[in-house]
Structures are given as structure tokens and as C-alpha cells.
Computed example of a mutant assay.
Amino acid sequence: MANTQARKRSAAIAFLVCCASFLVPASPAAAYGAGAVSWPVGLSGQYCLGSTATAHTSWPGYISTAVTQYNNITGYPRPYWSRSCGPGYQINIHVSSLPVGLCGATSHTPPQTGTLTSADISYTTRYGYVRGVPGTATSCNFDYVTTHEFGHSQGMPHGCVASAVMYGYDKGISVLTSDDKYSHRWLYDPNFIGPPSPDSSCA
């Protein structure tokens, strides 16, 4: 039962981005930069909420709050995202049936290395969503899943810091930490010189 609960409250992995076990933290190679993908620096991008997402009337606002955290990162050129389903949008967000243990999932093109051209974020129909508390065996924290999966859509894989959004388990954390921002900067700041990981536990 303990393993089942851990799986159900684990973070959604990104298809073809990370394949670490649900029950152990991501490996150092998966944590930062190995086979990195990213959007063009300075991209003005669009994310589209499909009808299965907008059917939940409160979701667009919650999703916008998560996306705004990425838009508000300063100090270097990075993608800026606005909501639109017009021609050429890059990120599709919807609801679908996912395997047991996943609260959400992200895939993108290309899957492993290079410049991103599209991404797909899916919320699960399998579990309910809560806010303000960590996920449980039967529920997922919506804000954590949203911020975490949007990070995957930016090219950010799982990290090793347990207090970070990009850690692989649902602890209800939804505010980007310095570790999350370091990962983002490593991908997008062309002038940044530093090790792939700031966290010695990933070494």
C-alpha cells in the first residue's frame, strides 16, 4: 500500500524527457542539462487550453498564475508565454487518461536535444485535484502539477532538491525556488557559465 500511495502522489514525469523511477529521486544526469532541450531565446510563445481544460472554469486562472512565474523570471532573455489557441500556438494543455501514478504528463518535440517546436501538457482524469495541501493516494495538488509540468514544457527535467517544484514528488510546492530558477537559467541564459547543478547532492 505504501508503494501504491507513493506512486499516486508522485509528480508526473515528462514522456521522453525523464524516465526515473517514481519511487526514487531523478538521477544527476536527468536532473540538469543532459540532452537539454529549450525554446528559442526570447520567444513570444502561446499556450492553448483545450476544451477539456476550460471545462473546469477555475483552471484558466490557476494555470495563468503558474505561467506568470516563468514569465516573471528576469535577468536574461527567456520565452514569454500568453494564452491563445490561434494559429501556430506551441503548447497544448488538456485533460486525458494517464497511467496509474501520474498526476499529469508532458511531452515535447524534439524529445531529447535541440530547439523545441511544440509541447503537450496533460492533466489526468484518474485522480481529483486539490489546492493548498500536498497530493494524497487519491488526489493531486493542482498548482504543483501545473507549475511542475510547465517547467517540463520549458525543457526543465526533474531535480534533486526535495523542496523544489521540479522535484519528482507532489509535496504541494507550487512556487519556483532558487533551484528551479537555476535550472531555467542554465537552459536560457546565453551568458551563464556554471555547473549543470548547484546542488551537491546531485553529484
Rank of each mutant, 00 (worst) to 15 (best):
Y32K: 10
L98M: 01
Y70G: 09
Q154Y: 11
I193W: 06
S174Y: 13
A31V: 04
V100A: 10
V130T: 14
D170R: 03
V24R: 15
P87N: 13
Y188P: 10
G35E: 13
N141I: 05
H152I: 01
R185L: 09
Y129W: 02
G101A: 01
P195G: 13
W39C: 08
Y123C: 00
A26D: 11
P99C: 07
D120C: 05
N191I: 02
Q69K: 11
A162H: 08
G42F: 06
I173K: 08
L98W: 02
W186D: 12
T54F: 00
D180H: 11
V161A: 10
T136I: 09
S84R: 07
N191P: 01
L102H: 12
I121Y: 00
A34W: 09
I173R: 10
Y129M: 04
T68P: 02
G86A: 13
H152N: 11
Y144A: 08
S10A: 15
S153N: 08
R9G: 00
P99D: 03
S178R: 15
A20P: 02
G132S: 09
G172N: 06
P60I: 02
L16M: 10
T68S: 15
G75Y: 09
I193L: 11
Q46I: 02
Q112D: 13
M166L: 01
Y127G: 03
T125N: 15
G75T: 04
Y144K: 08
H94D: 14
Q69A: 11
K181A: 07
A12V: 02
A105N: 14
P190N: 04
S97V: 06
R78M: 14
I121D: 00
H152T: 01
T113H: 11
T109L: 06
L187V: 06
Y62Q: 13
Q112Y: 07
V130A: 10
Q90M: 09
A34H: 12
I63L: 08
W59D: 01
I13T: 14
P195A: 15
G101H: 02
T136A: 12
V17P: 00
H108C: 00
P99E: 03
P111D: 07
G75F: 07
R83E: 15
V133T: 15
Y169F: 11
T177F: 01
M166R: 08
R131C: 07
W59K: 07
M156L: 12
V165M: 03
P195K: 12
D180K: 14
L176P: 03
S183W: 06
S51D: 08
P190M: 04
A162F: 01
M166S: 11
P87T: 14
L187H: 11
S197R: 10
H94S: 14
R131N: 13
H184R: 13
V67Y: 01
S200M: 03
G104P: 05
S51F: 05
D143S: 12
G172S: 04
S96R: 12
Y188K: 09
F192K: 12
I13M: 02
S118A: 12
H184Y: 15
G42P: 07
T177Y: 03
H56V: 08
S163F: 00
G159Q: 04
T138F: 11
P111H: 05
T124E: 12
